[in-house]
Amino acid sequence: MATAALEPAVDRAALLEFLLRIGDNALILGHRVSEWCGHSPALEEDIALANTALDLIGQTQLWLGLAGEVEGKGRSADDLAYLRDGYDFRNILLVERPNGDFGKTLMRQFLFDAWHYLLLKALKGLTEKRIAEIAEKAFKEVSYHLDRSRDLVIRLGDGTAESHRRMQEALDDLWPYTGEMFAADAVDAALVEAGVIPEPQSLKAGWDEIVAEALTEGTLKKPADGYMHKGGRRGVHTEHLGFILSEMQFLQRAYPGATW
């Protein structure tokens, strides 16, 4: 990948925080989705989910690679993925939710994809070239992720009574984790000011539209916006993240520097 210089005026600490947030979202969701490998209800779905997981892990390498560069302490993407502890992770809580059944995994994917799509679309056109380049590449992959998860949410929502019930339950269960996607703090404010990221709230209208359209078509009822769980973006996670990390990081922790 061509390496343009980073914009010198941008606050390095804020930039690092943002890169960890977007990179950790991809990493943790990628790992979650990879848990389906060999367990999906059909061979075709198994491969499709594995592809999605691999896309996300590929994006993680780019985001965390840049994060390591910005941090300037010589840490690689692998170091950041495998050698940080839970409170150092910055992913939103939605992506660490357990897979549940196939429908719930797809609902989580759809809610995330719709936002991820809009975020990357906005990042592509902003000033920080290194970020725009990664966003450009990831956007194509995520456009397909969204097409697929939206399609399946509609099909399963508007499918049998059983599939409809499961999708509605998944939606109700995951909805309180969607608010964190649009939360903003001082880090976001600094980067919005510098023209590096879009205002998080500015993605909400587009997300509402994509989600509402799919839910209507899938005969699913959008839950009311009530209490929204937050914390992942500042390192306060649910108990689920620890289990993910213990599995994901085991090898590097037990055999430091192991390669194959």
Binding site: E44, I47, A48
Partner: peptide, 20 residues
């Protein structure tokens, strides 16, 4: 060949299975 409920999904599945 592959299994799919309809043509649209067959295209998606084919993309995922045969064009990786």
């Amino acid at each position: 060949s592959l299994h799919a409920p309809d043509a649209e999904m067959a295209i998606n599945n084919a993309r995922d299975v045969y064009t990786r």
